[in-house]
Amino acid sequence: MGNTVLDVKNLLTQYYTNGGVIKAVDDVSFSIPKGQTVCLVGESGCGKSAVAMSIMGLIDGGSGGIKNGEILFEGKDLLKLKKHELRQLRGNDISMIFQEPMTSLNPVLTIGGQIMEPLMEHELISKKEAKKRALELIELVGIGRAEEIFNSYPHQLSGGMLQRIMIAIALACSPNLLIADEPTTALDVTIQAQILDLLRSLKEQRDMSMLLITHDLGVVAEVADYVIVMYAGKVIEEGPVVELFKNPKHPYTKGLLKAKPVINQRQEELYTIAGQVPNLATLTPSCYFSERCEQCMAICKEQMPKINDLDNGQRVACWLYEEVTTV
């Protein structure tokens, strides 16, 4: 460990759906070094949120569960902790912000009260002290009129403001790891940039580590140190951001990068990857991307490629590279 904040090993998370049990996260391993931002990317439904919810221990037992693996946070396996021990970490050492700021705050409680909650829960401080800290947090996330905001209710604020409040709540107890699940998807483009800047600068200031989930590769290019690409519950490629953008290996990653709109550059038609994400309930041993892959080979339909290290620090799971490394 030492320099690693989070180390996820062979995580297997299932959901029980009408179509059967699905592996939303299938044998996923990755780690987040201290002070770094790791981005998790992939199309909708590939299991990004499921990874985040697994780390937070927030998967509702009625709809799914973690079946295998380890989640080591600062050396402790979160999956072996008792319920109340995990609860004491949540909102304290590990925090999370969500995609929908408009619905993520309780409509009948004041903003101030909601910021004070984690402080009062995890730190032995008086109500007065908590209020002072809450006001500081509101200033910290770049909203003025702290006193007024403190006493207002969620419906009185805009989406961008609410996401700032969510960040304030997440940062209240100075976590070592911040998980942000598509924090800007629901916001206007201009606000998106502001929120990202805020997250980035706060991360620097406080020397946090961050797991940023997004399907926006523009965001990745701006903030990530390391990128993990998921497809149908599996990690199919990962690597340092510069390498991965310069030299994507997996046909899916290549497709994603091609599909990314380039700012200030007019494109006649935006490239899209043909086909759809497979149904997770009916997967057979194969490369899960094979249905959509232009370079699909015979073996791709029969066996699942393992993830392998390449020389430049990248890792990829694709038969195209298997031979190169094994022969």
């Binding site: 970490l89 993520s104 309780n106 409680l109 984690p118």
Partner: peptide, 26 residues
């Protein structure tokens, strides 16, 4: 099922607080 219940849990609040303070009131 609401998102703010998930937020309340993510804050590390006790289940009792999540259900009564955040849930029941709504």
């Amino acid at each position: 099922k609401q998102d703010f219940m998930r937020t309340a849990r993510a804050k590390g609040l006790k289940e009792r607080v999540v259900i009564f303070k955040h849930g029941l009131r709504n």
